[in-house]
């Protein structure tokens, strides 16, 4: 019963986490940064704005579908509510489903920026999907569990070091850290698929992004260190990723795609050695 209360508090915690993240990035840039409650103000402001009359049903539905996916995941990680003991593969698919909805939204917006964004996002997904699912499977196979409720391994990185490193690399892509933010490259295609949304739809999309990012930070701790420390260690992973975010530019698209092939090859090799 108490777990349900915890889970309800997780969504505001995700927004506060985002506020802390922006503050850390600002300190790396040698400036002050916004107040900690800024994501709340952003969402409230976006909800109060007028929305432009739009195009077709898919375009309208996509933000809500994306939000549903991310809320589903936060019910499973880190505290699984009773009855939500799905297989880990389902969770992996729901992550990927959320990105697929973004692609639908980009194509449905019928703007040239959206078309370019969707093509680049497809290339990205081609890259990290395989590696991500293989890494998840290897962790669960090593722990001998099939669902997040039964995952009880502690300090898994001592037995599976290479897989842990692979997980950290795929984290770059899932979180859209530069150089992998070609989909939402601001300078070139003016933030790709977000560029046609406004008002409440944009608020829902932003909320889905905040929740998904929060879950990824927890997931890393969950798999690598263990269930009990996952929530406490998430700021540490966030710090690591923000240091990498602020210190590298974007390569050209071709070069970023080539790095995936290396990661996917490494993941395939790892299946045999299970290291």
């Amino acid at each position: 019963m108490i777990e349900i209360l915890f889970v309800l508090l997780l969504v505001p915690l995700a927004l506060v986490f985002e506020g802390v993240r922006r503050r850390i990035v600002a300190r790396m840039h040698n400036r002050v940064g916004p107040p900690l409650m800024q994501p709340f103000y952003d969402i409230a402001k976006l909800i109060s704005k007028k929305e432009f009359q739009n195009r077709n049903e898919i375009f309208n539905l996509v933000p809500y579908l994306a939000l549903i996916c991310s809320l589903l995941i936060i019910l499973i990680i880190p505290f699984s509510i009773i009855g939500f003991d799905y297989d880990f593969l389902v969770v992996g698919y729901i992550f990927i489903l959320q990105d697929t909805f973004y692609i639908f939204g980009a194509i449905a917006s019928r703007s040239p920026f959206g078309m370019f964004a969707s093509v680049r996002e497809l290339l990205l997904m081609l890259g990290y999907e395989i590696t991500f699912l293989i890494v998840l499977a290897l962790f669960f196979y090593g722990a001998g569990a099939t669902s997040f409720q039964n995952y009880n391994a502690e300090f898994a990185f001592t037995q599976l070091p290479l897989v842990s490193i692979l997980l950290l690399f795929t984290g770059f892509v899932i979180l859209r850290i530069t150089p992998y933010d070609v989909m939402a490259a601001e300078a070139e295609i003016s933030a790709g698929f977000f560029s046609e949304y406004s008002g409440t739809s944009l608020a829902m999309l932003e909320l889905a992004e905040f929740i998904k990012n929060f879950v990824i930070y927890i997931l890393l701790g969950f798999l690598i260190v263990g269930k009990t420390y996952a929530l406490l260690l998430s700021p540490l992973f966030m710090l690591f990723y923000m240091i990498m975010l602020t210190s590298s530019p974007r390569y050209s698209t071709v070069v970023t795609v080539k790095t995936f092939l290396f990661l996917a090859a490494l993941a395939f090799v790892d299946i045999f050695f299970l290291v």
Binding site: H29, A185, R250
Partner: peptide
Amino acid sequence: MAHEIGLETLFMYYWR
């Protein structure tokens, strides 16, 4: 120029 390629930190340092 640094902002165009995504290197925000260099952008902030130049403007400082």
